[in-house]
C-alpha cells in the first residue's frame, strides 16, 4: 500500500505539480468553498453511486460522501496530478470507507437477524426478482471479504474500471490489485455457491 493510500503525506520531491490550468484544484487547495461546491456538482453523483456500491447501504453512502467532500479542501493539497480529480476523490472515499462499511455491515446483519429486509422504495416491477436476490446475495458475500478485496472487486467488476485505474484509486500497485481481485472472486464464488447459486 502506498503512502497516499494510507493517507500519509507524500514527500515533496515525489510530488508532481498539478496539471497546468487546473484552476478548480488550485481553488480547492486554497480552501475555496465555492470550489467544493463545483467539485460536488461535477463528481458528487459518481461518488455517491460508488459509495453505495462499496458500502451497500444508502445512508452510509451519503455519510461517506459528505465526509469525502468535507475533507476535500484539506486533502486537496496532496493531489499531485497523477490522476484526474474524480479518481482522487474516489481514493478519499476508499480511505474513509472502513468506518462506514463497518456500520453498514452491522446494520445489514441487524436486519437479517430481525428478518426484515431493507426497504426498497424505488423497486420497480420490471426488475427481475432473481437479479435482486442475486444482488443481495452478492452484498452479503462482499460483507465477508476483507476491505482491500472488497474494494478491488467493486472497482474492477462493479464499477468496471481497469486494474490500472483501480490501482490509481487505491494507491496500490496494479499487480496487487489483480491479486486482490483474484482472491475476492474466488471467495465470492465459494460464498455464493454456499448459498445455492451455481
Amino acid at each position: 500500500m502506498t503512502l497516499r493510500a494510507i493517507g500519509m503525506e507524500v514527500p515533496l520531491f515525489w510530488r508532481r505539480s498539478p496539471p497546468a490550468g487546473d484552476a478548480l484544484v488550485e481553488r480547492l487547495r486554497q480552501g475555496d468553498l465555492a470550489a467544493v461546491g463545483e467539485a460536488y456538482d461535477l463528481h458528487g453523483a459518481a461518488v455517491v453511486s460508488f459509495a453505495r456500491r462499496l458500502v451497500g447501504d444508502g445512508d452510509s453512502a451519503l455519510d461517506l460522501t459528505q465526509e469525502v467532500f468535507v475533507t476535500l479542501p484539506k486533502v486537496a493539497k496532496r493531489f499531485d496530478g497523477t490522476c484526474n480529480l474524480r479518481t482522487f476523490i474516489m481514493g478519499i472515499a476508499v480511505n474513509h470507507a472502513r468506518h462506514h462499511l463497518r456500520a453498514a455491515v452491522r446494520r445489514r446483519r441487524a436486519w437479517e437477524r430481525s428478518a426484515l429486509e431493507q426497504p426498497d422504495q424505488t423497486e420497480s416491477p420490471e426488475r427481475g426478482a432473481a437479479d435482486q436476490q442475486l444482488a443481495r446475495a452478492l452484498q452479503r458475500a462482499l460483507d465477508a471479504l476483507p476491505l482491500d478485496q472488497r474494494v478491488a472487486f467493486v472497482l474492477c467488476e462493479v464499477e468496471e474500471k481497469t486494474s490500472s485505474e483501480a490501482a490509481l484509486v487505491t494507491g496500490a500497485p496494479e499487480g496487487t490489485m489483480r491479486t486482490r481481485l483474484f482472491h475476492a472472486k474466488r471467495k465470492l464464488r465459494e460464498l455464493l455457491a454456499a448459498e445455492g447459486y451455481r
Binding site: 456500491r53 437479479d131 435482486q132 442475486l134 444482488a135 446475495a137 465470492l188 455464493l192 447459486y197
Partner: peptide, 12 residues
Amino acid sequence: LLQRAARALRDE
C-alpha cells in the same frame, strides 16, 4: 453468474 451478480448490484 458472478458477472451477472455484479451487474445486478450495479443496477440496484
